[in-house]
């Protein structure tokens, strides 16, 4: 079957907006509580491998060993994104995403950079966390990471 010149194909345009309530669990709740109350980042040390995992994970039988990490760390890789990202993140384009390994952690995690020109970002660069003024219980409670400045005493 083919279309006649005066016939149009129907495309039904719609969207799905479904509210969810995702339980963060005991571990992530504690992680976000440390940020909200103390502006400190905590990760967990695996009792078996002794590796400090960021983000924190559950250990057997509640044996989590909480370790403060950061707020400084090192960029392991990054990208400058030039296309619109979902509005979950209100940051304006371009957005620099980076894999950051915080001091004291054995794994890196993804976050975004701020207060830096996109062409100045380099792998291996030192950065430090900037916390959001008001914590909301999500990963943007760390607003972004900015280049670490060396203090001259």
């Amino acid at each position: 079957m083919s279309l006649q010149p005066d016939e149009e194909l129907v495309v039904y345009k719609s969207s799905m907006r479904i509210p969810y309530r995702w339980a963060a669990g005991l571990i992530a709740s504690k992680f976000y509580r440390h940020i909200a109350q103390e502006k400190k980042i905590y990760a967990t040390r695996c009792p078996k491998t002794q590796k400090v995992l960021m983000p924190p994970r559950k250990s057997p039988n509640g044996t989590e060993d909480w370790v403060e990490v950061g707020p400084g760390g090192e960029i392991k890789s990054f990208t400058v994104v030039r296309y619109p990202v979902p509005s979950l993140n209100p940051t304006t384009l371009p957005i620099v995403y980076a894999l950051i390994q915080l001091d004291g952690a054995d794994t890196a995690f993804v976050h975004q950079l701020g207060e830096i020109e996109t062409d100045k970002v380099k792998t291996g660069m030192r950065v430090t966390a900037v916390f959001a003024e008001k914590a909301a219980g999500n990963i943007l409670d760390i607003q972004y990471f900015k280049p670490e400045t060396v203090e001259i005493v």
């Binding site: 995702w22 669990g25 990208t79 979950l88 995403y97 993804v110 999500n138 990963i139 943007l140």
Partner: peptide, 22 residues
């Protein structure tokens, strides 16, 4: 995941780009 990552807004392309650079 919605707990530690999604809010940042990054996607499969941004992740692939970080791998490419590394």
């Amino acid at each position: 995941d919605p707990i530690y990552q999604r809010q940042l807004g990054f996607d499969l392309v941004a992740a692939g780009a970080m791998q490419a650079r590394a």
